[in-house]
Design a binder for these strands. Structure first.
Lengths: 132, 132
DNA sequence: CTCCATACTTACATATTTGTGCGTACTTAC
DNA sequence: GTAAGTACGCACAAATATGTAAGTATGGAG
């Protein structure tokens, strides 16, 4: 009785589709961490609406600190989702936007976000039902 | 010059679609936190493939500790995404599965996960390009 | 001449998350 | 009789995430 419904020999196609995110050492988990981090999601959503300068982005994403915004942007940049363009002028001027890859990623994240916002009422019913 | 590209008066339809996840006090952020938490994502993915008992689920999701799995399941249950059925027998027997709401949520999460797994190579190129 | 704005970085403090090990109340296998 | 499996809850410790305040180089406003 050790074969739980996950360990049956999946066909190759399935193996590819599902990858191995469920495996502890899958490198995808790192990307998942960046994209689903507290601020990663919000930054992706914000940048989907256009190009922003650092301070403007900070104002757009309610609640981020400078430190966290900078760190989040660095991660997403390293993953190739965010493009950073620095104009070498005296008062610094840097612009952030999504790369093609980033736009794809943002699309997925937005679908998730949309689902949550649309279904929030249904979820809140459960909150009340289980005594907050 | 305070109107950054986010604050232009959106039409009502847009306002509803986008909600206010970008606002610091939006209640959706709580749900987002549960669903995109380190183990929340993985549990949703695992449960999408069937019903599991606690220990089996723990084996399916590589790397979770008992404590975290229990906590994650409790959150998702309160949000109404996970159904917990406890059979009152002597060696405890509890079964976890997704509710209708949970299946919808899991679908979104899976799309995100699939995208990541499929595009991991493209992302890894950027890792190399930016020194690690 | 002083203050603000820009886009960050760094040091330090705190908050939140996560893990570890133990306990439970029994049953089945050895 | 002893060990293992079940589904957790709890206390404590360690790890990680996040916030705060200050600093940088420079130009423009007042």
């Amino acid at each position: 009785m050790k074969s739980d419904s996950i360990s049956k020999p999946l066909p190759l196609s399935e193996k590819l589709r599902r990858g191995n995110l469920l495996a502890a050492d899958c490198p995808s988990r790192e990307v998942l961490k960046h994209m689903t981090s507290r601020w990663g999601v919000l930054v992706l959503l914000a940048l989907e609406t256009g190009t922003f300068r650092f301070a403007a982005l900070r104002r757009a994403v309610g609640g981020v600190s400078e430190r966290m915004l900078a760190q989040t942007l660095r991660q997403l940049e390293q993953d190739g989702l965010v493009l950073r363009v620095a104009h070498d002028v005296v008062p610094p001027h840097v612009e952030y936007s999504l790369t093609a890859l980033g736009r794809e990623a943002a699309t997925q994240v937005r679908h998730l976000a949309d689902w949550i916002e649309v279904n929030l009422p249904r979820i809140q019913e459960n909150w009340r039902a289980s005594g907050n």
